[in-house]
Amino acid sequence: MARDTVESGAGVAGTDSIDELREFARGLAVSGGDVARRMLEQFATTGLAPRTKSSATDPVTVIDTIVEEHLRSEVAAARPGDRVLGEEGGEAEAAAGAGVVRWVVDPVDGTVNLLYGIPFTAVSVAAEVDGVVLAGAVHNIVTRETWTAGLGRGASLRAVDGTDTALTASGCDELSLALVGTGFGYDSDVRAEQGRVLAGLLPRIRDIRRCGSAALDLCMLAAGRIDAYYERCLKPWDHAAGALIAAEAGAVVAVSHDDGVPTTAAAPGVAREFLAALESLEAIEGPVSS
């Protein structure tokens, strides 16, 4: 099955455990952001500008690697029986068995933004058990906003001052008024196809935003800052936390396991029309799978 819907977990059992995982995910993501910020300050004082990612020793690769190492060490210290799947290090140990928590982490989502000093880059952390994401957190490294969700527990945004705001997807109910987020792959052939779909979609919507972080795009959808989102070639660490946050905010979300098919998310009032538009452009096939 290429695409799976991400459902809000209303009525799910074990909410105490989910709340615990959510709080741990929040702390983990924020601490990863702290590490990234300290490293950026260090590079600034030594005169190294993180504007390239071309070798194992360039500044951005070092930030990615060290933040992920920090996340792994925090999990190992606090929850030694858990597993970690990360963008940089993969799954260091054997795949998680039944009932085992696996932390799916992206140490820096929005690396190109980090390179250019664009404040749209994040640490993403999700807790998954038996293939189901139960909790997640996304922390913007620059603005220090933190989005979290627990399955069946809703989604919220914590501002820098500690204020928590419950999240609800936008009330947009007309595709022509929808602000849509997307992203592009690195392969030139994939980009050409993405350009074709985008050209067909643009006349049907209000506008496009390409912000450069899938995790934060999904959080923006949850906060009502955009109305729909789609992107091909995402990996589990790109969408694991963000997809849950968007779904718990009421969005219609379907994650893709096929690089040729986009992950999609949309406010409920525009989801059917949005998915129909993507289907007509041959970006997806048929209705969202369940």
Rank of each mutant, 00 (worst) to 15 (best):
L202K: 13
C219W: 04
D227M: 06
D259Y: 13
E88L: 03
G99C: 07
G131F: 08
F274M: 11
T57M: 09
L179Y: 03
E88N: 04
T168P: 00
A95M: 07
G260R: 13
R22D: 15
G269Y: 04
A96W: 00
I66F: 08
R210K: 14
T65P: 00
A159R: 12
I226L: 15
D207P: 07
G117R: 04
L175M: 00
E231S: 15
R37W: 03
R225W: 06
G152L: 04
V67L: 05
A36W: 13
L275I: 15
F120Q: 11
G97V: 01
N140F: 04
D34A: 09
S256A: 12
T263S: 12
V104F: 00
T264R: 07
E69A: 11
V270N: 03
I208A: 05
H239F: 14
A2H: 12
A267D: 06
D259N: 15
V253P: 01
S55H: 01
A246P: 02
L198H: 03
E282Y: 05
E88W: 07
G152D: 08
V133F: 12
D34E: 10
H70D: 10
L134E: 04
I141M: 05
I18Y: 09
A178S: 12
E69H: 11
I205Q: 02
A149D: 09
I63K: 13
V190H: 13
D109Q: 06
L48V: 03
G81V: 09
I226M: 07
R232Y: 15
A192N: 15
P107Q: 09
R191L: 09
A78Q: 12
G32L: 09
L114R: 03
T182K: 08
D258N: 13
A76F: 09
Y186R: 15
A247Q: 00
T264I: 08
L234Y: 13
V12S: 15
A271E: 07
A271R: 11
D19F: 01
S280T: 10
V60G: 06
S280Y: 05
A56Q: 00
T65M: 02
L28G: 00
E282G: 14
G242N: 11
A2W: 10
E128D: 11
R210H: 13
D64K: 10
V60S: 07
E279R: 13
D82R: 12
S124P: 04
S176P: 01
T264F: 11
T168Y: 10
D16W: 12
A247D: 01
A266H: 02
A251K: 03
P107N: 03
V62T: 14
A283W: 00
L177G: 13
A199P: 01
A169Y: 00
D258G: 07
L115C: 10
C172Y: 05
S124Y: 04
R83F: 07
E145M: 03
I63A: 03
